[in-house]
């Protein structure tokens, strides 16, 4: 369930579930359960808890604590680019087979 947040006269953001579609499509797994450690403030949160600015040339996920960018996802013509330089660690649960 996506929640859209709009402060008066501000850029809207949605929660990290907005990344489930594009990331799931290329990686075949639900990455919203991934946990990211923000390189800015070093706190760890699930990707779903990040703030995603989606009205932009790409999807920009920011840490809700310090507002630094933790992930960027850009759909190019034939590829999807995932940039995680703003995250120190990306951890995923082991799939239960």
């Amino acid at each position: 369930m996506l929640t859209v947040h709009v402060e008066a006269d501000d850029a809207p953001w949605v929660d990290g579930n907005a990344l489930a579609g594009p990331l799931g499509e290329i990686m075949g797994t639900d990455l919203t359960v991934a946990e990211l450690t923000c390189a800015g403030c070093r706190t760890t949160r699930p990707l779903a808890a990040m703030r995603v600015f989606d009205r932009a040339p790409g999807l920009v996920a920011r840490c809700p604590g310090c507002e630094d960018v933790v992930m960027r996802v850009v759909r190019m013509t034939g590829r999807v680019l995932v940039d995680v330089r703003g995250s120190l660690i990306v951890s995923l649960p082991v799939p239960t087979a």
Binding site: D10, A11, F53, R55, A56, E67, V69
Partner: peptide
């Protein structure tokens, strides 16, 4: 005039 933004204003 669409507003595009990669972060808070």
């Amino acid at each position: 005039f669409p507003v595009l933004s990669a972060g808070p204003t």
